[in-house]
Design a protein around this nucleic acid. Structure first.
Lengths: 295, 295
DNA sequence: ATCATGATATAACCTTGGGTTATGGTATAA
DNA sequence: TTATACCATAACCCAAGGTTATATCATGAT
């Protein structure tokens, strides 16, 4: 194929109507443009322009070529424009994998802030469990995930967002369990936890086993919402995430039950593919989530 | 706009899937391509490819850009192809202005030959009088015209095709007018000529006036066909073009009446715009009509 | 007629940027 | 481990494209 730059010059000259104007538009001198169109004419072996003292106009063959070249450069220019907008974060798409719980209690404010800051970037949220989120990440179906306690050693890279603590809570008027109590003491009360397949639950089960407490929950449910609600109306003792029930504690709707040993704190963080460049939009989102500098 | 050559390299790499293959396709070395895509990435400030030891693949932004660039270069390549076909005379259009008489008696065999030689070139024939043909030429609506006795001094250039002679003819058994006769002698017979607005007629009128013969035709008609036919059935003496009644003379259907002085021979020729390049197709046609070399 | 203007063409020269060769790093397959 | 195929980097080089200067031509105004 002929040097695409020659077509660009041709396109500009045909559009401008004079060689001089085209030269100005291309930020080069007039002889340079003259030379270029002459060269294109030699390569195509076709007279493309009719020169006169008033400027140039397209020959029969030039007109035909111009129909194609014009369209071609419209596409190239559109592409350039779109890329520029993406670069300026005026357009784009970011696909996030996140559990329902984290979305509900942690993610929404960030989402809102990001959307206000970059209204042109569309956001896709895929609500799945952590293992499924990792699968999606592997398949390239999401840009990054937000999960808790990511396993080390995998083709992903992690970034901590927040340290969370698991705590036991009960309703305001729930009897007993005042002050620090041993873990085993909870066995006497109705216990409420998340479902088995939840990562949080698995973490807690490990913690319980480690401390020799064979506690089984009386109620299992998929959503933290319900746990909070059930505890509030006095159904029993619920295991919830401390960070997400600030309001209930402040307003006295729930009270925290201090157990020893307390469940060790853990992290939630971003997981993303290692060695794969993030899209501009995804990078912007992650920067908004944790604006620390990177090497 | 960014250097179009960089987009071409981008397009090739994206299509080939590896830098090395693209280099081969572009007839350059691999480092040259590496450098080009790096430069494009710098100019757009976007990572466009994800490199691996198996090759490269498009990043999110690269994919988006590629959608546009691909289409863009499809157009450019199509244009290049079409121009090549025009150059090879496999496609094209030639627009000829010619009178009905010349078309009927002179042009058709050439037309046929040209069409057989270049079946891909479409032909438009515009049947008009010579002055109208010149107008069309001026307006750029035809590529060239075929007319007789072009006036000198105009923004056109001429090329002779054929010398023609105007002769008087009568039917085989038409009485009298044997051997050379003076022009005035024709006044005794029914005279048949083309219509007033015909260039041939004007030429003959000037010839008659010049020779002091105030002859008026008894029959005027627009088509040479009818003149020939009328003479054949003995209606009178017709003024026709010698070159176009070869057959009738050979078969003895008509006989030529020698008058003194004879009308001076004149030419038919091609008229085309001066200083305007002809289209490839038009040039091919003219070359086929009179294959003489040009300066 | 004459001159001024604005357009393209041409020639000679210069420089920069794309291309080359050589080399190194890194996954993947044998 | 070796071998291979791929991409990145560095240093060098030279032609292609650009610049300046000038010629030429057509046009329109004085």
């Amino acid at each position: 194929m002929i040097d695409a730059e020659l077509y660009r010059v041709f396109n500009t000259v045909a559009t401008c109507g004079t060689v001089s104007a085209a030269a100005e538009a291309l930020f080069v001198t007039q002889p340079a443009v003259s030379k270029s169109i002459r060269k294109l004419e030699e390569l195509t072996d076709c007279r493309l322009f009719i020169r006169s003292s008033k400027g140039v106009r397209l020959s029969t063959e030039g007109q035909i070529l111009f129909e194609y070249v014009k369209k071609g450069f419209e596409h190239l220019q559109n592409g350039e424009q779109v890329l520029k907008k993406i670069r300026n974060r005026e357009e784009g798409l970011v696909r996030v994998g996140i559990s329902s719980t984290l979305c509900r209690y942690y993610f929404i404010p960030h989402l809102e802030a990001f959307h206000q800051r970059y209204p042109g970037i569309r956001i896709t949220i895929v609500n799945r469990t952590s293992p499924e989120t990792l699968k999606l990440l592997e398949g390239g179906l999401i840009d990054f995930g937000i999960i808790s306690i990511p396993k080390k050693r995998s083709p992903f890279v992690y970034r901590e967002l927040l340290t969370i603590r698991d705590v036991f809570v009960a309703g305001r008027d729930f009897p007993g369990l005042q002050g620090p109590v041993p873990l085993q003491a909870l066995g006497q009360y109705p216990l409420m936890m998340l479902e088995k397949d939840n990562v949080t639950r698995q973490y807690i089960d490990a913690y319980l086993t480690e401390n020799g407490a064979m506690l089984q929950p009386d109620i299992e449910i998929g959503s933290l919402d319900f746990l909070v609600e059930f505890a509030r109306i006095g159904l029993g003792v619920a295991l919830v995430i401390r960070n997400f029930i600030d309001d209930e504690l402040r307003f006295g709707l729930l009270r925290e039950i201090e157990v020893t040993p307390a469940p060790p704190p853990r992290q939630i963080g971003i997981v993303m593919p290692a060695n794969l460049p993030l899209s501009v939009a995804a990078k912007a989102f992650i920067d908004a989530l944790c604006p620390q500098v990177r090497p």
